[in-house]
Design a protein around this nucleic acid. Sequence first.
DNA 1: AAATCGTGGGC
DNA 2: TGCCCAAGATT
Length: 345
Amino acid sequence: MPKQFGQILVKWAKENFRELPWKEDNDPYKIWISEIILQQTRISQGLPYYLKFVKKYPDVFALAKAPENEVLKLWEGLGYYSRARNLHHTSKVIAFEFNGRFPNTYEELLKLKGIGPYTAAAIASFAFGKSHPVVDGNVLRLISRYFGIENSIDEGQTKKYIEAICESAIRDQDPAIFNQAIMDFGSQICSPKKSKCENCVFQSNCVAFDKQMVSTLPKRTKKIRKRERYFLFVIEHKDGKVIIEKRIAEDIWKGLYQFPLIETTKVNFDSNGLKEIIDQKYDVEIETISQSITNVLTHQTIRVKFVFTKNFKIGKGQKRIKTASIYKYAFPRVITRFLDELSWD
DNA sequence: AAATCGTGGGC
DNA sequence: TGCCCAAGATT
C-alpha cells in the first residue's frame, strides 16, 4: 500500500463531497440509527426510514420508551427485521443501563446487539473520531481490485487481510473523512459493474486494472440455496374485523403479523383440493381463493395464496382486530401489497 | 464456518 | 427474466 493511498482518497472525496443528513452534527444516536438502517441497504431505500425514525424518536430515550410493535411498524417494508428488534433492544440498554450515554470505543460498541465490526467502526469514527476503518462491501471490492486479491471475500481470512490493509491506510488520515471517502469511492468509482476506470485516480497502481480483472474481482464463493415454500393466508372478514397472529418463531418476518397461516407443500398448494388441506388445520368455510403470488426473497421463494373464509374458529395466539386498525400492525410486504389492492367492501 | 435474515433497483 | 447486489449481523 503506497503511503499516498489515503491522501489521494481524501483529496478525491473532498472534490466529490456530498452531505449526508446524519452527519450534520456528530450525534452518535443519529449516526447509529443511520448505520443500522443502511446495513445491506441502499441510501435511496433507507433515507425515508431514517427521516421517519429520527422524527418520531429524536433521541435514545424516545426510542427506548416505544413499544417494540411500534418500532417494527416504522420499520415495515425495509426488511431484515432483526435490525429493528436489536435496535430497540440496544436503545433500552443505552437509555436505562448507561443513562443515555453512548459507548464511545470500538470495543464497547461491538458488545451491543446489532452492532458488528462495520457498524462499530462507523460509529467510532463518525461520532467519536476514533481511528477504525470501515470494511463494507464497497471497501472489500476496492481493496480486492487494487491489490488483485483473488481469494474469496466470503472467507474470514480474506476479510482480516483487507482489514489490516485498511488499518494501516487510515493511520495518517482523519478517520471520519477517510471512512466516508473509501466507501464513497467504492460505490461511485469502483462500482460492481461499469467501474469508472477511465478517470480513476488509482489506475496506475491498480493490479486488477493492469491484469484486466476488474470485472472478475472481488471473488465470491458462497452460493445461495433457495428454498421453495408455500403459504396459505386465511382471511376472515366479518363485522369489520379480521383475524391476525404474530410470527414468533425463529423464521423469516419474526415479530411481524400475518393472517392465520397454513404452510403446505407444492403438491397440496397446486391441487384442486385445497379445501381438505385447510380443513385439516382450521374449522372454516371457504369462500374464495386468490391466485398464487410469488414472493422472491434472498434465500427462499414463497408462493402465497389468500384464502377468504367464513366462520373461522379463532385459535391460540390469534386475535380479532378492526380492519380500520390494521395500519397499527407491521406486516410483511407480500401482505401489505395485497391489502393495498383490496377494499374490504 | 456456513446459513439465514427482506426488499427493491439495475440490467 | 433471472440474477446480482446493497454503508452486515447473528447463530
